[in-house]
């Protein structure tokens, strides 16, 4: 074989154009993640236990106590979208640990030596992190229906919930990936993960209206993407749900946060393998 033939080998087939390559590569990465879930769904199912408990225990108790004024909306109807967002957050925020694990194994290196752009790799990871939330959503919907939450079951509303949920969860998964790239070890990540989730959760309108919060917490809630995710879910998921912002604004904030985080993650991701 001459060196010329050898040099021609990698280009033996035409490469798709860059934009298409980006989409294909991201989907390849996401699909591999989904295949893993299909082989072993136990983790995802155990993560669905937590939102169910929140709805059944926390929701029922507080609804009975009538401790939190939620206007004309039943507390349980108010809470359901919050619990949905929360369950997505809690599972997405630990997404980074899988990435550190992949680094420790060497799986990460395999991805990084491929010609795929770093941004497409993290986008694929983020997408997978987002899609995972849909499985939990299905569980939450079933339980919510059983305990009498007034769900909106129209196709547009359900699709809207799916989109908002995937956007938000993808954003938090990417946030988690960024943290993972910064702290680099599983031990440190576990500590940080715990420290981050609670403020994100409580400085949002997930379990009580923003209006009830002290001013400093309201400020935090305003810059917290979770607030916008819950806000959109509240419009789309339950009938009579009142939102603070229009859904397109909520979605816009989530998209913006996701894009910014992806750009940061795309920069940091390769450093994990150094």
């Amino acid at each position: 074989m001459t060196s010329l033939e050898r040099a021609a080998r990698p280009a033996a087939w035409a490469e798709p154009p860059a934009v298409l390559r980006f989409v294909l590569d991201a989907w390849t990465v996401a699909e591999a993640e989904l295949q893993k879930l299909a082989h072993d769904p136990t983790e995802l199912l155990t993560r669905a236990v937590q939102p169910v408990l929140w709805l059944l225990v926390f929701g029922e108790v507080l609804a009975r106590a009538r401790a939190i004024p939620t206007g004309h909306l039943d507390y349980i109807d108010f809470l359901a979208p919050g619990v949905l967002a929360q369950s997505a957050l809690f599972s997405a925020i630990f997404f980074g640990i899988a990435v550190i694990w992949e680094r420790d194994l060497g799986v990460l290196h395999k991805y990084l030596v491929s010609p795929a752009s770093r941004l497409s790799l993290v986008t694929g990871k983020a997408l997978a992190g987002g899609l995972r939330a849909l499985v939990q959503a299905a569980v939450v919907y079933v339980v919510a229906a059983l305990i009498g939450v007034h769900l909106q079951l129209g196709i547009p509303q359900i699709l809207g919930v799916a989109v908002v949920l995937v956007l938000g969860a993808a954003g938090f998964a990417t946030f988690s990936l960024v943290i993972a790239c910064l702290v680099r070890t599983r031990e440190r990540f576990m500590g940080i993960g715990q420290v981050l989730t609670m403020p994100l959760f409580f400085a949002s309108s997930a379990v009580y209206p923003v209006a009830l919060m002290p001013t400093w917490l309201q400020v935090l809630a305003r810059v917290n993407p979770l607030t916008y995710q819950v806000d959109a879910l509240r419009s789309l998921m339950v009938s009579g749900g009142t939102a603070t912002f229009p859904v397109p604004l909520d979605a816009g904030v989530l998209v913006l946060a996701l894009v910014v985080l992806l750009l940061i993650a795309g920069r940091l991701y390769p450093r994990l393998a150094m």
Binding site: P10, Q35, K36, D40, L105, G106, H109, K110, V113, S114
Partner: peptide, 17 residues
């Protein structure tokens, strides 16, 4: 990257696939 293949020092195939 298009021209190379790499097998890392660690066992890098994904065990869950």
């Amino acid at each position: 990257r298009r021209a190379i293949g790499y097998v890392p020092q660690l066992l890098s195939s994904d065990g869950t696939l």
